[in-house]
């Protein structure tokens, strides 16, 4: 055979080895970046702990002038951001990943705390901001996915209520109590608790708009804070 046509096995082996090394480097860099994300999430968790604690202290300290000085919007926004990031982590590591499960469990506690606080502000300051506790599961519940879509969309158009999403299969005492109290069962998911009233099964957008009187609230809010809607 003409020498140039001859197969140099060593070159093929070298190419394979270098390719595998590049893959390995890619995996290491990717893994490193994700590790940092987990760290970032833990530090975010710390922030929210401080945030919620300070809010509670404010809540207890200024009993007299509670309604004037209580501003929960940054707390709410940070909670929502953690929620989005957690959803993303679920996508990266899967629902089953123990780190994700732990973070979600902790997140659900933060939500319960926020919910209680908001409820109290509602009662003491005669606000009536709607509070929705949303029970769902990632495990074989198509309607839950749809319900999630509807709630996200609803908030985008009417940012006038709070949603607290609770994964049914998480196991902690606070959640267990809530499930017991509202009679939440797996086969009846998704379930919404709207201002104490329990709604089983998928709720479409229009019925939620009506139930929460969102059109009226939107009109009022637009009149009161026109700068928010420019």
């Amino acid at each position: 055979m003409i020498s140039r046509k001859r197969i140099k096995t060593s070159r093929y082996v070298a190419a394979l080895a270098i390719t595998l090394v590049i893959f390995l480097i890619g995996f290491i860099i990717g893994g490193e970046i994700n590790e940092r994300k987990i760290d970032a999430l833990y530090s975010l968790e710390q922030d929210i702990r401080v945030e919620s604690l300070s809010n509670e202290l404010v809540f207890q300290l200024v009993q007299k002038d509670l309604c004037g000085s209580m501003n929960m919007s940054s707390y709410t926004e940070e909670l929502a951001q953690i929620g989005r990031r957690l959803t993303y982590m679920e996508g990266v590591y899967g629902y089953e990943d123990p780190r994700v499960v732990r973070l979600k469990s902790y997140y659900s506690l933060l939500q319960v705390r926020h919910w209680l606080l908001s409820d109290e502000v509602n009662a003491k300051c005669s606000y009536d901001k709607p509070l929705i506790v949303y029970f769902y599961t990632n495990d074989g519940c198509g309607d839950c996915e749809d319900q999630g879509l509807v709630l996200t969309n609803l908030y985008r158009h009417y940012p006038l209520f709070n949603t607290y999403s609770m994964e049914y299969s998480l196991d902690n005492p606070a959640l267990a109590f809530l499930k017991e109290r509202y009679g939440i069962e797996r086969h009846r998911l998704p379930t919404l608790v709207v201002n104490g009233e329990v709604l089983y099964g998928f709720q479409d957008k229009d019925s939620l708009v009506e139930r929460l009187e969102l059109e009226r609230r939107l009109a009022e809010d637009m009149a009161a804070n026109p700068e928010r809607y420019e």
């Binding site: 893959f23 890619g26 990717g30 994300k37 970032a40 990031r85």
Partner: peptide, 14 residues
């Protein structure tokens, strides 16, 4: 936009 939500792993690096 939240930079946290951008995935950089092997399927983007390679």
């Amino acid at each position: 936009f939240d930079p946290f939500l951008v995935t950089i792993d092997n399927t983007t690096i390679l």
